[in-house]
Simulated assay, not measured.
Amino acid sequence: MPHAARSFFLPLGLALLTGSAAQAQDVYFSQAYANRQADNPAWAGIVDDYSATLGYRNQFPQLAGAFETVQLAADWRLPKPGLHHALGLLVSQDRAGGVGYTRFSAAAQYAYHTRLTRTLALSGGAQVGYGRQRVGYDNFTFGDQYSADGSYTGATAESLAGFPPINYFTVGVGGVLYAEEFWVSLSGQHLNRPDLGFRQQAGLPLRISVTGGYKLFLQKPVGAGKGEQREISLTPTLSYSRQGGSQRSEAGAYFLADPVTVGAIYRNLASPDLGTQHVVALVAGVAFGDLRVGYAYDVGVSPLASALGGAHEITLTLRAFDKLESAFRRLKRRNYPKAPCPDF
Rank of each mutant, 00 (worst) to 15 (best):
R207V: 02
D290Q: 12
V47L: 13
P165C: 01
A106H: 11
A179L: 06
A21E: 03
H190T: 06
A108Y: 14
F9C: 07
S123M: 04
G143K: 08
Q219D: 05
F169P: 01
L191R: 08
F169N: 02
Y146A: 06
A161V: 06
T153K: 12
Q247C: 01
L304T: 10
A251C: 03
L191S: 10
L269F: 10
P41R: 09
D258Y: 13
E180M: 01
S246Q: 12
V176Q: 01
T170I: 01
G289F: 10
G131S: 15
L120Q: 14
W76C: 02
G131M: 15
R333F: 06
L90S: 15
P165K: 00
G143E: 15
L90H: 15
F169T: 00
K338Y: 12
T69C: 11
Q37A: 02
R230V: 02
Y112T: 03
A264C: 12
S246R: 13
L308K: 09
F198R: 09
A251W: 00
R248D: 03
Y101M: 09
D298R: 07
P165Q: 00
A307C: 02
A224G: 00
H312E: 07
I46D: 00
A21F: 07
H312Q: 13
A307Q: 05
G82I: 06
Q133G: 14
S233T: 01
L90D: 15
G252H: 07
G223K: 08
P165I: 02
Y50W: 14
S187E: 07
A320S: 09
D75V: 09
Q23V: 14
V27C: 08
V171E: 02
F321D: 10
E228M: 00
G227K: 05
N335A: 14
D195G: 04
R329I: 08
Y295H: 04
I46Q: 03
Q219I: 10
D258T: 13
S7F: 13
G213I: 11
L78N: 07
G125D: 05
H113M: 10
T153G: 00
Q247Y: 03
A179V: 04
R334W: 07
G154C: 05
D322M: 09
Q93G: 12
V260Y: 11
Q109G: 13
S249P: 03
G88I: 10
Y297E: 10
A311G: 14
A22Y: 12
P259K: 00
Y254E: 01
G162Q: 00
F182T: 05
Y168A: 04
L89G: 15
K226I: 02
H190F: 06
G223Y: 01
Q25F: 01
D298W: 13
A202L: 06
G213Y: 11
P236H: 03
V70I: 13
T117N: 14
G88W: 03
P337H: 09
S302D: 08
L10H: 06
N335G: 15
F163G: 00
S246G: 10
Q93F: 05
R267L: 15
V279T: 14
L316C: 12
Q127K: 15
P81I: 13
P221T: 04
A224V: 13
Y130L: 09
L17I: 12
R57G: 11
F288K: 08
M1I: 11
A24L: 10
S92Y: 08
S123H: 04
T53H: 04
S30M: 09
A108W: 07
A155F: 01
F344P: 08
G129V: 07
